[in-house]
Every structure is written in C-alpha cells, then in structure tokens.
Write a protein that binds this DNA or RNA. Structure first.
Lengths: 112, 112
DNA sequence: ATAGTGTGTAAGATGTTGCTTAAACACTTA
DNA sequence: TAAGTGTTTAAGCAACATCTTACACACTAT
C-alpha cells in the first residue's frame, strides 16, 4: 500500500494511470501526452508505477505497452474507503442524535 | 485532491489519521503514540494534515484536539475507486469473453 | 507576576524526488 | 553488418520533505 500511495501522490503519475486505465498504451504514446517533460522523465514514472505494481508491462517487439493493474490499488482504496466511510457514518449517527434531541426523543447511551 | 493524496502518502500521517478517525485526540496524546519521532515532527505532520483539510482542529484551553475530516478524502477516494472499479469491470468483461470462448465456468472474483 | 504545561514555529542538517542531458540497450529493417 | 526507432539507464542537480534542537507562544495555576 505504501508504494501505491506514494506512486499515486504524483500528479503526472495519476495522469498516466488514467491514460492506461482502459487500454494498453506504449511508452512513446504516453510520453507524447506530456510535452512539457522529457521522455526519460516519463520512463522513470513508468518504472515507479511498475515497481508499485500499479501497471503491467507487455513487451512487443520494439515497444513496451503499459496497462493499469487495478489489483494494485486494492489496499489503498480499502484504506481510504475505511477512513472515509467509517467516519462519515459517525457523522451520520451524530446527525441522527441531533435530530432525536430536537424532537425530544433522546438516547442517553449515545452521548459521550 | 493533490494535497490529500500527498498527505496520505506518508505512513506516519496515515497512522495519525487512524488515531483520530473515531474520536478527538490531543496533539500530546498523538505524539505519545510515536515515541520514535519528536513532538515537533508530529506537530508538523498535523499541520500538513490540517492544510490538506484532512483533519479538523478544536482548541480547548491549553490543548488542541484533532479529528478526522472525512470529506477531505472524498476526491481522493473517488479517483482511486474509479480507477479501481472501472478497470476491474473491464477485466470482468474480458473474463466473460474468455468464458464464452472456452465455454468454461470460471469465477473471476477469486482473482481480486 | 511567575512558573508550569501543552503546543507550535524557526533554522538547519540530511535524505528523497523529479527533472535534465547524454549514453546505452533492444529490437527492426535495409 | 549497419543504420534507424523505441525505450530505458546513468549521472548530476535543484527542489522538496522530514527530521532534530532550540526557542517562542498560549493558556493555567500558584
């Protein structure tokens, strides 16, 4: 998870992931989408993504095709979802307590 | 989203988020959980998390209490979920094509 | 006021990241 | 073999992140 979240923290790498989400894309084609940075820079990002197991590589002749490897995101998604939804459900419960309190239907066990 | 993902890329900050997920925790109490790093280091992490709007702060007398602000994770969760599930559904479609081709009855869910 | 407790800020050392240019590798084609 | 294309690796550098120590701030209580 650590590698995945670190990899995903960079905006260029996130953009690359979007590019390779739905189809295989060659390194060169990826690099074309980032005219502002050099090819080696893109290559290094691809290496980082590969090391984080966020993309798969297929070598075909001269070229290398990259594609999203969604399983690599599983742990990171789970972590963030847990933080997000667990805490949201807490907020929801508080909201419900608020509502009961206002309608005179209090639940003492719920109070802190 | 950028700030949130960068903030969450650090393991210490992730651990802090877990600590403040379910309840308010004071800066001192948080720092106690990280004996290996100094108090100022923790304070700086808290600042980063606050700037990323991933936690809320409440000042009470001497102390400052931190708590998870789940809304701050919304965009990041959405991004990762989209990458994850969209791509998984692609895999599923490929699996279904495979299945039709082989007339087998395998269950792709196992590969998650 | 003064001292004590909880916390944050400043300054600086150190390691890491992301970029660039130059060179090398790998495969294709003449 | 030699030249051409696609891609990665190497080396070096500037920017940034994270840590530490020392100090400052804010509030509490003698």
């Amino acid at each position: 998870m650590d590698d995945a979240l670190r990899a995903v923290a960079d905006p260029t790498r996130r953009a690359i992931l979007v590019l390779v989400r739905d189809r295989e894309v060659s390194a060169g084609e990826i690099a074309e989408r980032f005219p502002e940075i050099s090819r080696p820079a893109v290559s290094q990002h691809l290496r980082t993504l590969t090391a984080a197991r966020l993309v798969d590589v297929r070598r075909a002749g001269n070229r290398r095709f990259y594609r999203l490897r969604p399983e690599g995101l599983a742990e990171a998604v789970t972590f963030l979802e847990t933080m997000w939804s667990t805490s949201l459900s807490r907020l929801q419960h508080e909201a419900e307590r608020e509502e009961r309190a206002h309608t005179g239907d209090q639940d003492m066990k719920g109070s802190l």
